[in-house]
Amino acid sequence: MIEHFLVGFALLLGLSGGYLIASTRWRGKRSEQPQQVHQILLPFTGTEISRRALDAALRLAKAEQATLMPAYLAAVPKQLPLECAIPAEAAKAMPMLEAIEQRATGQGVPVDARVERGRSYRHALSRLLDHESFDRVVVSATSTGAAGFSGDDLVWLLDKAPAEVLILRPGPEDHRVLTA
């Protein structure tokens, strides 16, 4: 009787020990995993956006269950106050954001859009970096610079962005753009 009790107790002790060791190792492994991505920033300018950049951002957002943050960057002329209403720029931005949201929603990706003003695209991006938090930035380095970002801008972004920056190299599909 006592032997049965001792065997049962030893078995219980062994199982508990095994569970403790396994759960500690699993917790350790989990802490080594990369931090979860919540927001993916997709800055753009003008009335079109590279389909490659948008599709890449959407794929990442979907895989990581993140929110896509498309951000229209508007350059405000120097003769206007920086915080003034910009209906002409808004008329370009709103249909673009609508088109992006439509595409994102079709793929089940939540969207939280922004419009940021600055004296230049870089200045607008800098202001956005100052007050928004995101974990990844996706930009397209087109050979024509049509996306509004020059090589210098991209180097600057790599230096300043407090997040992982994904720059898509120019590709044959760059002529495919999303327009409103």
Partner: peptide, 12 residues
């Protein structure tokens, strides 16, 4: 709220 305020300001 900040994002809405910003959007409102851009749109006038």
């Amino acid at each position: 709220v900040t994002a809405l305020r910003q959007l409102a300001s851009v749109l006038g």
